[in-house]
Design a binder for these strands. Structure first.
Length: 484
RNA sequence: GAUUCCGUAGCUCAGCUGGUAGAGCAAUACACUUUUAAUGUAUGGGCCCUGGGUUCGAAUCCCAGCGGGAUCACCA
């Protein structure tokens, strides 16, 4: 008996998946009461009511009919099966054989005549029940348990599994979209000697053999641009970034970003590309461009509104900050009761006003364009507006999900911008960007005009699945250690 | 990091102004072989997060710690 209960290696599971089973119902079994041939199926035993049991696999559930005296053929085999059925626990993996039939209420089920244990569950799974109206009766909801034991969460909460399937599809659709354009998916270093490309505190580590300090990347931008210098027309990378910052419902120390750089393009082109990309993703993942996020119904169908940062501030505050110097901006912040620090330069002050007064209004997808030069050291100067750069951020539901530039490809200007960052750092801005000599050298060899874009995959998934918490879209969100 | 709420059975939760632990589901046994969250009867199940304190007596009140959620700050 014991042998039957433990972790069988021989499985005939490839005979039929649940999905195939459902197709068989449609094509063959419907209208019949009993299939001619046995089918073989395997899955997780998820409960029993009388002779009716639920078997679950990755796709869904099917009903089994386990008749008391109908298992096995020989008397010994019948006896054995009776014992096996008694030993069934929720969570056990079993394989069954039987014929399809329609029950009295019309549900297509498997009339089991043979049952085999594949694996035993030694711990009781939480039992979640739901009725036809979707009411859930015995839920498994404790966030701490759900995140620490995601395997249980995924087993008993099908809507959780659905989120992660969507997340995977978002990435797949994105990849397919880029690949169709001939852009190249690449991988760049996670361990970097200089943490460039963004403004954030890094995780630091040490390489023993080289005896050198290394940082987990906070961004991969400077490496991807090196590849554009190297002659690729379009490169993109989907991968983890690491930032040693605070954690909350929208921040996890490691998160996934997609960065893409396309040569001979500018940020106007990029805006159109992003519209097509997001529209495609929304349709492929949700079947529609519209998505409900909390209270708001959002439509990802392009084109999106485009408004410059200065105009957006004017629109929502009535104040024109475009000609103001640092002193005037500080005065404005004070009048609006916006907290500012001494180290903040002009760009940062404008960003504070924007964050405080504008962001929350940007519900439908909206491009904010043309940022002050001080806060964007890697973007190209605006072709006609003094003091601005060609940059946009895409806001949806009041939150930023994409950031893009016409990339700065003038090495002399780039060196100057890095030096301005160093000055900010000296004033106490610990987010100011470090200078990367090799990156400058690459630019000195010549980089074509290029547009670059970054999209937060976690954030995008949160929006497309209507989840306000990043933990709900990460399989294993960062947690403090569990104490035994 | 700050504020605030929370931590009781495998899960979801009651447990009042302090008097020594409860329900539903799950589990076990027996009966039932049926349906669509939940059949019946019976039974077992607890470091009430941890450590101090107050008290004759603490799941309950106080303090500290640990873990989680929410809000804020920082960031994406």
């Amino acid at each position: 008996m014991r042998g039957e209960l433990t972790f069988n290696a021989k499985v005939n599971r490839n005979v039929m998946t649940f999905q195939e089973f459902i197709e068989v119902i449609k094509e063959e079994a419907l209208g019949k009461y009993q299939s001619a041939e046995d089918i073989s199926i395997a899955g997780r035993f998820m409960g029993q009511r009388g002779p009716f049991a639920q078997l679950q696999d990755a796709v869904g559930r099917v009903q089994l009919y386990i008749g008391k005296d109908e298992l096995g053929e020989t008397p010994e085999n019948k006896e054995r099966h009776k014992k096996l059925v008694k030993l069934l626990d929720i969570g056990d993996y079993i394989a069954v054989k039987g014929k399809l039939f329609a029950t009295g209420t019309g549900e297509i089920s498997i009339h089991v005549h043979e049952l085999k244990f594949l694996s035993k569950s030694l711990r009781p799974l939480p039992i979640v029940k739901r009725d036809k109206d979707g009411n859930i009766y015995d839920s498994f909801t404790d966030p701490e348990l759900r995140y620490r034991q995601r395997y249980v969460d995924l087993t008993v909460n099908p809507e959780v599994k659905e989120i992660f399937i969507k997340r995977s599809r978002i990435v797949t659709v994105m990849r397919r979209f880029f690949d169709a354009q001939g852009w190249l998916e690449v991988e760049t270093p996670v361990l970097q000697p200089i943490h460039g490309g963004a403004a954030a505190r890094p995780f630091a580590t040490h390489h023993n053999t080289l005896d050198m300090k290394l940082y987990m990347r906070i961004a991969n931008e400077l490496y991807l641009k090196r590849l554009i210098v190297g002659g690729f027309d379009g490169v993109y990378e989907i991968g983890k970034m690491f930032r040693n910052e605070g954690m909350d419902r929208t921040h996890n120390p490691e998160f996934t970003s997609m960065e893409i750089y396309v040569a001979y393009k500018d940020y106007n082109w990029m805006m159109s590309m992003v519209e097509q990309l997001l529209e495609t993703i929304a349709k492929e993942v949700n079947g529609t461009t519209k998505v409900q996020i909390g209270e708001n119904s959002i439509d990802f169908a392009g084109p999106y509104e485009r408004i410059s940062m200065y105009d957006s501030i004017k629109k929502y505050t009535g104040i024109d900050v475009s000609q103001m110097d640092e002193v005037a901006l500080r005065k404005v912040c004070k009048e609006m009761h916006i907290k500012v620090d001494d180290y903040m330069g002009k760009g940062k002050l404008i960003d504070e006003i924007f964050g405080e007064k504008v962001e929350d209004h940007l519900i439908q997808p909206t491009y904010i364009t043309d940022y002050p030069i001080e806060m964007t050291p890697l973007a190209k100067k605006h072709r006609s507006e003094e003091g601005l750069v060609e940059r946009f951020e895409l806001f949806v539901n009041g939150k930023e999900i994409a950031n893009a530039y016409s990339e700065l490809n003038d090495p002399i200007d780039q060196r100057q911008r890095f030096e301005d960052q160093l000055k900010l750092a000296e004033r106490g801005d610990d987010e100011a960007m470090a200078l990367d000599e090799d990156f400058l050298r690459a630019l000195e060899y010549g980089m074509p005009p290029t547009s670059g874009l970054g999209i937060g995959i976690d954030r995008l998934t949160m929006m497309l699945t209507n989840n306000p918490s990043i933990q709900e879209v990460l399989f294993f969100p960062q947690m403090k250690p569990e104490v035994a």
